Amino acid sequence: MFALPTHHTSPLLADDMTSWQLYVGLQGRINRRSFWLHGVLALLVVGMVLMALLEIAGFHPDRAETLANLLIAWPAIAVSAKRWHDRDRSGWWVLVTLVPLIGQLWALIDNGFLPGTPGENRFGAQPRR
């Protein structure tokens, strides 16, 4: 039967977090590097590849974009929640992105540029990198 990965980690991932834990789970903390690599760059590339494949399959570009965005929405939320945790804030702060422009800018600055809390916080140990 299908088994979820539990022990294989990438050297690019923070601590001992698996890809499954990073992109699907809501627990833990990640640093800015992991946020930019996995929450921005990787999901941007995946989204563009999905859009291209859907357009090749005959989907209208607007529909392909909508479907690609829906498919990467949960991984983006999971990565962002972990980054909010590193800032010692609840994962519910991902909802700030629903505020047009200001919320998205706030989330980008807070998640992408400000350091996490030093040491352990209520969401776990400080990420190694």
Results as ranks from 00 to 15, higher is better:
1 M>H: 13
1 M>L: 10
2 F>Y: 11
2 F>I: 10
5 P>T: 06
5 P>K: 08
9 T>Q: 08
12 L>M: 09
14 A>T: 10
15 D>P: 03
16 D>P: 04
16 D>M: 06
17 M>E: 09
17 M>A: 10
18 T>W: 09
18 T>D: 10
21 Q>W: 01
22 L>A: 04
24 V>N: 15
25 G>T: 05
25 G>Q: 09
27 Q>S: 14
29 R>M: 05
30 I>D: 00
31 N>A: 13
31 N>V: 06
33 R>N: 10
35 F>K: 00
36 W>I: 04
37 L>R: 02
40 V>F: 07
41 L>H: 09
42 A>L: 14
42 A>T: 10
42 A>P: 01
43 L>A: 06
45 V>P: 02
46 V>Y: 08
47 G>L: 03
47 G>C: 11
48 M>L: 12
49 V>W: 10
49 V>L: 14
50 L>S: 05
51 M>R: 02
51 M>Q: 15
51 M>C: 11
51 M>A: 06
51 M>F: 04
52 A>C: 12
53 L>S: 10
54 L>W: 03
54 L>Q: 03
54 L>H: 01
56 I>F: 10
56 I>Y: 10
57 A>S: 13
57 A>V: 04
59 F>D: 00
60 H>A: 15
61 P>S: 11
62 D>Q: 14
62 D>C: 09
63 R>W: 12
63 R>V: 14
65 E>K: 08
66 T>H: 12
66 T>E: 14
67 L>V: 10
68 A>S: 07
69 N>G: 14
70 L>R: 06
70 L>W: 11
71 L>R: 02
74 W>L: 15
75 P>H: 06
78 A>E: 02
78 A>R: 00
78 A>V: 01
79 V>C: 05
81 A>I: 00
82 K>R: 14
83 R>V: 01
83 R>M: 03
85 H>N: 07
85 H>G: 05
86 D>W: 01
86 D>K: 02
87 R>P: 05
88 D>M: 08
89 R>P: 02
90 S>F: 09
91 G>P: 00
93 W>G: 04
93 W>I: 03
94 V>K: 03
95 L>P: 02
95 L>V: 05
96 V>S: 12
97 T>S: 14
99 V>R: 13
99 V>M: 14
99 V>Y: 13
101 L>A: 10
102 I>E: 12
103 G>K: 02
103 G>P: 03
104 Q>D: 06
105 L>D: 05
105 L>N: 07
105 L>K: 07
107 A>K: 03
108 L>I: 11
108 L>H: 04
108 L>M: 13
110 D>E: 14
110 D>P: 00
110 D>M: 08
110 D>V: 11
112 G>F: 05
113 F>D: 09
113 F>V: 15
114 L>D: 07
115 P>R: 14
115 P>F: 08
117 T>Q: 13
118 P>L: 06
118 P>C: 09
122 R>G: 05
123 F>N: 02
124 G>C: 08
124 G>S: 05
126 Q>R: 09
126 Q>L: 06
127 P>I: 00
127 P>F: 02
128 R>L: 11
128 R>A: 11
128 R>F: 11
129 R>N: 11
